[in-house]
Amino acid sequence: MTTPITPDLVRGALDLVRTDRGLLPQRLPARARAQVPDEQTAMAVAQPSGVRLVLRTAATQLELDVVRTTNSYPGVPPRPDGVYDALVDGVLVERATASGGDVLEIDLATGARTLRRGPVGTVRFRHLPPGEKHLEVWLPHTEITTLVALRADAPVAPVPPEPAHDEDDDGGRPRRRTWVHHGSSISHGSGADSPSTTWPALAAALGGVELVNLGFGGSALLDPFTARAVRDTSADLVSLKVGINVVNGDVMRRRAFGPALHGFLDTVREGHPDAPLVVVTALACPVHEDVPGPSAPVMTDGGVRFAATGDPADVAAGRLSLRATREVVTEVVRARQGDDPHLHLLDGLELYGLADAEEHPLPDDLHPDATTHRLVAERFARWAFAAGAPFAVR
């Protein structure tokens, strides 16, 4: 039987756009997307990291028709197909991929883009456990995904909305809190095995919270439109991981970075004045620790690696290395904490430090692998969700 894909079946998206082919999840609202200045950010926003269908059903078989958009880079080995994760009552039970779809060819040297349209594909889950269950289908974090049709061998219903902040659900259990996180490609999920195993998704599962992932590859740049989106999104917990994109995009100097972070936090606090707010400095990235950006792709026999192209001598004149961003972020947060008792600072080196980079090196010198995503998630969960920690239940 076919079930219409309606907004009440989708979580983790801030907008759902009706297109001529289906329903397109977007991770920024329309007003913010109208202010996005570049194709990289627009693509990251449209890739549904953390977006999932959430259903109640007794189905053992489910099909989802989609139009995926994959990226192709001339001269670079193709990326693996995006993965769809099916979780039952929070446990991964099946994975699948889709065929067909559009292909966006991107020339890494010139930035030129060519879109080739392709057919609708179908994702099939054939071995879901029997009985009524809470089913989540996580969409690929690496592929723009248009939702076309949903079919199952039993009725499908949306999961009722969470109770209000001061209420329990019908079973007397406390409401699951919502965590809104903003960060870079690492938060987006680059290098993770699948959408439910990005470090924010894993940390959310460990913390027992609902995730809204606003990690945008290449685009954690303290943009005001992103700050307003965080401000206007319902949240109990908020975090911001900042530093690497400012460096590898070479978009700011020290003079602008501090005030921009202040402004971002001011805007977030307009919507979430008392929510626990964690600011995370950059994880270790050896090529950029003391060398400013921009980063540049370097073609190798194994694919693409990234190199820092700036001059370390320019840091003294205000150009930003990762080490410099950590200094500025620490200064800004410490300056605000006297008036903001719910503001917290987490040194990203506690999540992934230089010693970790020796044991678990970044495969392309910029992004972690799947093992490191799990490492970061476990460390973040211990730091944030343990008893007495910033995100602990009060």
Rank of each mutant, 00 (worst) to 15 (best):
L202E: 12
A381P: 02
E270G: 10
V93T: 14
L108I: 10
L240I: 12
D311Y: 14
D85A: 02
P160C: 04
L128V: 03
Y73L: 12
E327I: 09
Y84Q: 05
S219W: 06
P155L: 05
L202K: 09
R124K: 13
F391A: 00
V298N: 05
G353E: 10
R176D: 07
L108Q: 11
G218W: 08
L128H: 08
E378G: 11
T198N: 08
G22N: 09
R21A: 01
G172S: 02
R254D: 15
I186Y: 07
R124V: 08
H288R: 04
E358A: 14
L362Y: 11
R113M: 12
G90H: 14
W383C: 01
R253K: 12
A96Q: 09
A324Y: 01
R21H: 03
V315W: 12
A205C: 04
G243Y: 06
G183Q: 08
A370W: 10
N248V: 14
D65P: 06
G338N: 13
V251R: 14
D364P: 04
A96C: 04
L24Q: 00
P195T: 06
N245E: 09
Y352A: 02
R379V: 01
L261I: 05
A282N: 15
G75K: 13
R126P: 00
V332C: 02
V51E: 01
R334V: 10
V137Y: 09
T3H: 07
F264P: 01
V137Q: 07
V393N: 11
R231G: 02
D153S: 02
R95T: 15
D314Y: 09
T142E: 10
R126F: 00
P161D: 15
G191V: 08
F306M: 11
F225H: 15
A235H: 09
D274E: 15
D8Q: 10
H288S: 12
A389L: 02
T300I: 13
A370D: 14
R374H: 14
A34Q: 12
P341N: 11
D369V: 04
D153V: 06
A59H: 12
R21G: 00
T70P: 00
L87R: 15
M252A: 14
D153W: 09
V287D: 12
V159Y: 10
P29L: 00
H262L: 10
E63D: 12
H165Y: 10
D166K: 06
P224G: 03
V279A: 09
R269T: 08
H367P: 08
P25E: 00
P200T: 04
V123H: 05
A59L: 08
A227W: 07
A152P: 01
G12M: 01
L64V: 05
G121I: 06
C285K: 10
L206P: 00
R11C: 06
V247C: 02
W179V: 03
G243H: 08
H134W: 15
S321C: 03
Q337H: 07
E358T: 14
E39Y: 05
P259K: 11
A227C: 04
P158S: 05
A370R: 12
F306C: 03
H127V: 06
G302H: 15
R18F: 00
V246Y: 04
R117W: 03
A192C: 05
P361V: 13
L53H: 11
L362P: 09
V91P: 00
P200Q: 08
T122P: 04
R394E: 13
